[in-house]
Protein backbone atom coordinates (compact mmCIF):
# COMPACT_ATOMS: atom_id res chain seq x y z
CA UNK A 1 0.00 0.00 0.00
CA UNK A 2 2.89 2.33 0.82
CA UNK A 3 3.88 2.65 -2.83
CA UNK A 4 0.52 3.99 -3.77
CA UNK A 5 0.63 7.74 -3.50
CA UNK A 6 -3.07 8.34 -3.93
CA UNK A 7 -4.64 6.21 -1.26
CA UNK A 8 -5.81 8.56 1.48
CA UNK A 9 -4.96 7.15 4.84
CA UNK A 10 -7.49 8.87 7.05
CA UNK A 11 -10.65 7.52 5.44
CA UNK A 12 -9.45 3.94 5.27
CA UNK A 13 -11.78 3.08 8.14
CA UNK A 14 -14.94 4.22 6.33
CA UNK A 15 -15.20 2.86 2.83
CA UNK A 16 -17.22 5.10 0.51
CA UNK A 17 -18.77 2.09 -1.18
CA UNK A 18 -19.48 -1.09 0.67
CA UNK A 19 -21.04 -4.11 -0.96
CA UNK A 20 -21.77 -7.00 1.37
CA UNK A 21 -22.69 -10.53 0.21
CA UNK A 22 -24.72 -9.17 -2.69
CA UNK A 23 -26.61 -11.47 -5.07
CA UNK A 24 -28.62 -10.68 -8.16
CA UNK A 25 -30.77 -12.80 -10.44
CA UNK A 26 -32.36 -12.16 -13.81
CA UNK A 27 -35.35 -14.48 -13.51
CA UNK A 28 -33.70 -17.78 -12.68
CA UNK A 29 -30.28 -16.75 -13.92
CA UNK A 30 -27.77 -15.99 -11.18
CA UNK A 31 -25.88 -12.97 -12.59
CA UNK A 32 -24.05 -11.75 -9.50
CA UNK A 33 -22.91 -14.27 -6.91
CA UNK A 34 -21.99 -13.26 -3.41
CA UNK A 35 -20.23 -10.02 -4.29
CA UNK A 36 -18.34 -8.31 -1.45
CA UNK A 37 -16.43 -5.18 -2.18
CA UNK A 38 -15.06 -2.20 -0.31
CA UNK A 39 -13.94 0.96 -2.05
CA UNK A 40 -11.96 3.58 -0.11
CA UNK A 41 -12.31 7.26 -0.79
CA UNK A 42 -9.99 8.21 -3.66
CA UNK A 43 -9.44 4.63 -4.72
CA UNK A 44 -9.42 3.73 -8.40
CA UNK A 45 -10.63 0.30 -9.34
CA UNK A 46 -10.62 -1.29 -12.76
CA UNK A 47 -13.01 -4.17 -13.30
CA UNK A 48 -12.35 -6.49 -16.20
CA UNK A 49 -13.63 -9.82 -17.37
CA UNK A 50 -15.21 -11.55 -20.34
CA UNK A 51 -18.51 -10.25 -21.66
CA UNK A 52 -21.49 -11.51 -19.71
CA UNK A 53 -19.43 -11.84 -16.55
CA UNK A 54 -21.65 -9.37 -14.71
CA UNK A 55 -19.17 -6.50 -14.43
CA UNK A 56 -21.50 -3.90 -15.95
CA UNK A 57 -24.38 -5.21 -13.86
CA UNK A 58 -22.25 -4.80 -10.73
CA UNK A 59 -21.54 -1.11 -11.24
CA UNK A 60 -25.12 -0.50 -12.38
CA UNK A 61 -26.24 -1.92 -9.03
CA UNK A 62 -24.16 0.71 -7.26
CA UNK A 63 -26.42 3.53 -8.44
CA UNK A 64 -29.47 1.29 -8.49
CA UNK A 65 -30.02 1.20 -12.24
CA UNK A 66 -30.35 -2.49 -11.40
CA UNK A 67 -31.89 -3.89 -8.25
CA UNK A 68 -30.11 -6.47 -6.14
CA UNK A 69 -32.14 -9.15 -4.43
CA UNK A 70 -29.90 -10.22 -1.58
CA UNK A 71 -27.16 -8.60 0.46
CA UNK A 72 -26.47 -4.93 1.08
CA UNK A 73 -25.04 -2.01 -0.82
CA UNK A 74 -24.03 1.10 1.14
CA UNK A 75 -22.81 4.20 -0.66
CA UNK A 76 -21.34 6.98 1.49
CA UNK A 77 -23.32 5.82 4.49
CA UNK A 78 -26.62 5.51 2.61
CA UNK A 79 -27.96 2.03 2.11
CA UNK A 80 -29.71 1.28 -1.19
CA UNK A 81 -33.16 -0.10 -0.42
CA UNK A 82 -36.59 0.42 -1.90
CA UNK A 83 -36.57 3.88 -0.29
CA UNK A 84 -36.74 6.33 -3.17
CA UNK A 85 -35.14 9.11 -1.07
CA UNK A 86 -32.03 7.03 -0.54
CA UNK A 87 -31.86 6.11 -4.20
CA UNK A 88 -32.07 9.76 -5.25
CA UNK A 89 -29.45 10.76 -2.71
CA UNK A 90 -27.02 8.10 -3.94
CA UNK A 91 -27.63 8.91 -7.59
CA UNK A 92 -26.94 12.60 -7.01
CA UNK A 93 -23.57 11.69 -5.47
CA UNK A 94 -22.52 9.02 -7.93
CA UNK A 95 -21.72 10.02 -11.49
CA UNK A 96 -22.01 7.53 -14.32
CA UNK A 97 -20.54 7.43 -17.80
CA UNK A 98 -22.13 5.03 -20.28
CA UNK A 99 -20.78 3.04 -23.19
CA UNK A 100 -23.12 4.83 -25.60
CA UNK A 101 -22.72 8.31 -24.03
CA UNK A 102 -26.50 8.75 -23.63
CA UNK A 103 -26.36 12.50 -24.06
CA UNK A 104 -29.80 14.09 -24.38
CA UNK A 105 -30.18 14.79 -28.11
CA UNK A 106 -32.84 17.48 -27.69
CA UNK A 107 -30.65 19.66 -25.45
CA UNK A 108 -27.51 21.62 -26.29
CA UNK A 109 -24.21 20.55 -24.78
CA UNK A 110 -24.51 23.29 -22.16
CA UNK A 111 -28.09 22.31 -21.32
CA UNK A 112 -27.00 18.69 -21.01
CA UNK A 113 -24.50 19.78 -18.38
CA UNK A 114 -26.79 22.10 -16.43
CA UNK A 115 -29.84 19.80 -16.33
CA UNK A 116 -28.76 17.98 -13.18
CA UNK A 117 -27.41 21.00 -11.25
CA UNK A 118 -30.54 23.03 -11.98
CA UNK A 119 -33.18 20.39 -11.25
CA UNK A 120 -31.46 18.20 -8.67
CA UNK A 121 -29.02 20.53 -6.91
CA UNK A 122 -31.32 23.56 -7.43
CA UNK A 123 -28.47 25.80 -8.52
CA UNK A 124 -29.14 29.18 -10.11
CA UNK A 125 -28.93 28.97 -13.88
CA UNK A 126 -26.03 31.41 -14.18
CA UNK A 127 -23.92 29.56 -11.59
CA UNK A 128 -24.77 26.23 -13.19
CA UNK A 129 -23.68 27.53 -16.59
CA UNK A 130 -20.45 28.97 -15.23
CA UNK A 131 -19.61 25.67 -13.58
CA UNK A 132 -20.56 23.81 -16.73
CA UNK A 133 -18.25 25.98 -18.82
CA UNK A 134 -15.40 25.27 -16.39
CA UNK A 135 -15.91 21.54 -16.79
CA UNK A 136 -16.21 21.86 -20.54
CA UNK A 137 -12.87 23.66 -20.58
CA UNK A 138 -11.46 20.90 -18.45
CA UNK A 139 -12.46 18.29 -21.02
CA UNK A 140 -11.22 20.71 -23.72
CA UNK A 141 -14.52 21.17 -25.53
CA UNK A 142 -15.77 24.58 -24.34
CA UNK A 143 -16.14 25.94 -27.88
CA UNK A 144 -18.88 23.37 -28.62
CA UNK A 145 -21.17 24.47 -25.77
CA UNK A 146 -23.97 25.76 -28.01
CA UNK A 147 -24.04 22.74 -30.31
CA UNK A 148 -26.25 19.68 -30.09
CA UNK A 149 -24.89 16.20 -29.29
CA UNK A 150 -25.64 14.97 -32.81
CA UNK A 151 -23.09 17.44 -34.18
CA UNK A 152 -20.18 16.05 -32.15
CA UNK A 153 -17.88 13.09 -32.75
CA UNK A 154 -18.07 10.05 -30.49
CA UNK A 155 -14.98 11.02 -28.53
CA UNK A 156 -16.27 14.54 -28.01
CA UNK A 157 -19.66 13.21 -26.91
CA UNK A 158 -18.05 10.95 -24.34
CA UNK A 159 -16.00 13.83 -22.95
CA UNK A 160 -19.21 15.85 -22.66
CA UNK A 161 -20.80 12.90 -20.85
CA UNK A 162 -17.92 12.90 -18.36
CA UNK A 163 -18.28 16.65 -17.86
CA UNK A 164 -22.03 16.19 -17.35
CA UNK A 165 -21.37 13.80 -14.48
CA UNK A 166 -18.70 16.07 -12.99
CA UNK A 167 -21.13 19.00 -12.89
CA UNK A 168 -22.95 17.23 -10.06
CA UNK A 169 -19.74 17.22 -7.96
CA UNK A 170 -19.94 13.48 -7.51
CA UNK A 171 -18.04 11.63 -4.80
CA UNK A 172 -17.72 8.56 -6.99
CA UNK A 173 -17.58 8.12 -10.74
CA UNK A 174 -18.71 4.92 -12.44
CA UNK A 175 -17.50 4.19 -15.97
CA UNK A 176 -19.32 1.50 -17.93
CA UNK A 177 -17.00 0.58 -20.83
CA UNK A 178 -16.51 4.25 -21.72
CA UNK A 179 -14.31 3.60 -24.74
CA UNK A 180 -15.90 0.47 -26.23
CA UNK A 181 -18.12 2.35 -28.69
CA UNK A 182 -15.37 4.66 -29.90
CA UNK A 183 -13.17 4.60 -32.96
CA UNK A 184 -9.53 3.86 -32.06
CA UNK A 185 -8.30 7.40 -32.70
CA UNK A 186 -10.83 8.80 -30.23
CA UNK A 187 -10.09 6.44 -27.37
CA UNK A 188 -7.02 8.36 -26.28
CA UNK A 189 -8.78 11.71 -25.87
CA UNK A 190 -11.28 10.09 -23.52
CA UNK A 191 -8.66 8.14 -21.58
CA UNK A 192 -6.61 11.34 -21.14
CA UNK A 193 -9.58 13.01 -19.47
CA UNK A 194 -10.06 9.98 -17.23
CA UNK A 195 -6.37 9.98 -16.26
CA UNK A 196 -6.56 13.68 -15.35
CA UNK A 197 -9.55 12.90 -13.22
CA UNK A 198 -7.72 10.09 -11.47
CA UNK A 199 -4.79 12.34 -10.71
CA UNK A 200 -7.12 14.78 -8.99
CA UNK A 201 -8.09 12.04 -6.57
CA UNK A 202 -11.57 11.09 -7.82
CA UNK A 203 -12.90 7.77 -6.61
CA UNK A 204 -13.45 5.74 -9.77
CA UNK A 205 -14.88 2.37 -10.69
CA UNK A 206 -14.06 1.62 -14.29
CA UNK A 207 -15.29 -1.31 -16.34
CA UNK A 208 -12.95 -1.44 -19.29
CA UNK A 209 -10.81 -3.58 -21.56
CA UNK A 210 -8.11 -0.89 -21.75
CA UNK A 211 -5.40 -2.74 -19.89
CA UNK A 212 -2.89 0.08 -20.44
CA UNK A 213 -5.18 2.37 -18.47
CA UNK A 214 -5.53 -0.26 -15.74
CA UNK A 215 -1.77 -0.65 -15.41
CA UNK A 216 -1.03 3.06 -15.18
CA UNK A 217 -3.94 4.37 -13.15
CA UNK A 218 -5.64 1.64 -11.10
CA UNK A 219 -5.01 1.02 -7.42
CA UNK A 220 -6.69 -2.32 -7.72
CA UNK A 221 -7.71 -4.54 -10.64
CA UNK A 222 -10.63 -6.92 -10.24
CA UNK A 223 -11.30 -9.84 -12.51
CA UNK A 224 -14.88 -11.05 -12.75
CA UNK A 225 -16.16 -14.22 -14.38
CA UNK A 226 -19.55 -15.91 -14.30
CA UNK A 227 -20.95 -13.38 -11.90
CA UNK A 228 -18.30 -13.46 -9.20
CA UNK A 229 -15.13 -11.64 -8.34
CA UNK A 230 -12.53 -14.27 -9.12
CA UNK A 231 -9.41 -12.40 -8.22
CA UNK A 232 -8.31 -8.92 -7.25
CA UNK A 233 -4.86 -7.50 -6.78
CA UNK A 234 -2.72 -4.46 -7.36
CA UNK A 235 -2.11 -3.99 -11.09
CA UNK A 236 1.55 -4.95 -10.93
CA UNK A 237 0.92 -8.41 -9.44
CA UNK A 238 -2.38 -8.85 -11.25
CA UNK A 239 -0.78 -8.64 -14.67
CA UNK A 240 2.60 -10.20 -13.91
CA UNK A 241 1.51 -12.92 -11.59
CA UNK A 242 -2.12 -13.93 -12.00
CA UNK A 243 -3.11 -16.70 -9.62
CA UNK A 244 -6.27 -18.11 -11.06
CA UNK A 245 -6.54 -20.26 -14.20
CA UNK A 246 -9.45 -18.23 -15.50
CA UNK A 247 -7.55 -14.99 -14.99
CA UNK A 248 -4.56 -16.38 -16.84
CA UNK A 249 -6.74 -17.48 -19.72
CA UNK A 250 -8.47 -14.11 -19.90
CA UNK A 251 -5.22 -12.18 -19.81
CA UNK A 252 -3.69 -14.36 -22.47
CA UNK A 253 -6.65 -13.63 -24.74
CA UNK A 254 -6.72 -9.91 -24.19
CA UNK A 255 -3.05 -8.91 -24.03
Amino acid sequence: MSEQSHSPQESAEHPIIEVIDMHKWYGDFHVLKDISLQVQNGERIVICGPSGSGKSTLIRCINRLEEHQKGRIIVDGTELTNDIKNIEKVRAEVGMVFQHFNLFPHLTILENLTLGPIWVRKTAKKDAEEAAMRYLEKVKIAEQAKKFPGQLSGGQQQRVAIARSLCMNPKVMLFDEPTSALDPEMIKEVLDVMIDLAEEGMTMLVVTHEMGFAKSVADRVMFMDEGQIVEQNNPHDFFDNPQHERTKLFLSQIL
Binding site: A92, G95, M96, F98, N102, L103, F104, G116, W119, M168
Partner: peptide
Protein backbone atom coordinates in the same frame (compact mmCIF):
# COMPACT_ATOMS: atom_id res chain seq x y z
CA UNK B 1 -34.00 4.59 -25.73
CA UNK B 2 -33.50 3.01 -22.35
CA UNK B 3 -30.09 4.66 -22.22
CA UNK B 4 -31.74 8.09 -22.12
CA UNK B 5 -33.81 7.13 -19.11
CA UNK B 6 -30.82 5.55 -17.38
CA UNK B 7 -28.66 8.62 -17.99
CA UNK B 8 -31.40 10.86 -16.61
CA UNK B 9 -31.74 8.67 -13.53
CA UNK B 10 -27.97 8.57 -13.09
CA UNK B 11 -27.91 12.38 -13.02
CA UNK B 12 -30.32 12.08 -10.10
CA UNK B 13 -33.57 13.28 -11.66
Amino acid sequence: SRGQVEAAKAVGL
